[in-house]
């Protein structure tokens, strides 16, 4: 099941990260998202960033 697999991988990765002494990134919980109403803002954002948020990526961060 997708969620359980993700949870498992998340625990596994956390364990690996902790073992190798890498700082675990903090986790922010958010239910409501901030509107990005203006297309231009978004394009501006992507040109400034290496992370191109338009490019298709695997849809969950470790899955």
């Amino acid at each position: 099941m997708a969620i359980n697999r993700r949870k498992f991988l998340s625990y596994f990765l956390t364990a690996v990260i902790t073992k190798y002494g890498v700082k675990k990134p903090s986790l922010i919980r958010q239910t409501y998202a901030i509107p990005l109403p203006n297309k231009k803002v978004l394009i501006h954002f992507t040109t400034k960033n290496k992370n191109n948020i338009f490019s298709p990526k695997p849809s969950s961060w470790i899955g």
Binding site: I3, P25, S26, L27, I28, R29, Q30, T31, A33, W61
Partner: peptide, 11 residues
């Protein structure tokens, strides 16, 4: 390091 965000809108 940028924080990870956990979306809690859906299951």
């Amino acid at each position: 390091m940028t924080a990870l965000v956990k979306c809690e809108l859906c299951p």
